[in-house]
Amino acid sequence: MAESISALKNGEVEIEYKKSSQIKEIWRRLKRNRTAVVGLFIISFIAIIALLAPVISPYNPYEQNLNQRLLGIGARGHILGTDEYGRDLLSRLIYGARLSLIVGFCSVAFGLVFGVLLGLLSGYYKRLDGIIMRIIDILLAFPGVLLALAIVSILGTGIVNVIIAVGIWSIPTIARVVRGTVLYIKEMDYVTAAKALGESDFMILFREILPNCISSIVVYSTMRLATAILSAATLSFLGLGAQPPVAEWGAMASTGRNFIFQAPHLTLLPGFAIILIVYGFNSLGDGLRDALDPNLKNV
């Protein structure tokens, strides 16, 4: 969802070709942006929880205790209650932070590897542009849900396949963002200069062009993380998500929906957790865009 915003803006992104003190400047701007700070804070908070999961979670998130099932919030020994197998909900939410971050990062990384490569090639080589863009068109026109269904039917359900499915969804839009930036940078003086100096295409692409696409890639990826986590939740709803008993927020919110009358916290709490992390990534992405884009810094 969020990709449209950055995809749109990216054409206008003004990239400063000053490596030194650039990061400091970005950080300074980011700090001034309150939403971004909040986003960064949320993400750091979730990341810390994820890292410390084994230390801070009160129970083993997979340990079943059918005598203690469906306890409500505030129950003795289980602050956030238990799920349908009597597993501690707080512990599962804590461990879920790990999986949500893993799904988010890995799938975006997957999308980046292919998307950036396709984008670079298609932006730089006019000959390849036509064919790559047609492939991208096909990928875009192909319904994402169906693609995920197909991948999961072929490879089976499980976290890795969710990552692949969600990752493939990211490829076409990432490729477009990168292509757009490359088309713009390609015409810059320093690229022309490098060409004149006889640098190889490979060097130009990876030494001159790619580093200057980084800011738009970072902005876009941050927002894409949010989309990826939501997509994983949607896959869980369709029965294609993380396999049980894995504690993943999307899967928890989705299986919890069957208990919406009996024990609403089973779906509400993971749902709020998703909102929190998605909000975090979106705000951070917004902030980064503002920080990296002088045109918009006052808004």
């Binding site: 969802m1 949607t234 919406i260 998703i274 909102i275 929190l276 909000y279």
Partner: peptide
């Protein structure tokens, strides 16, 4: 609007139904 962007749609739908 943050809420709207951030929540899974099946989840919003079910809450609306309830």
């Amino acid at each position: 609007s943050t809420f709207g962007i951030s929540a899974p749609s099946f989840w919003i739908g079910l809450l609306l139904i309830v």
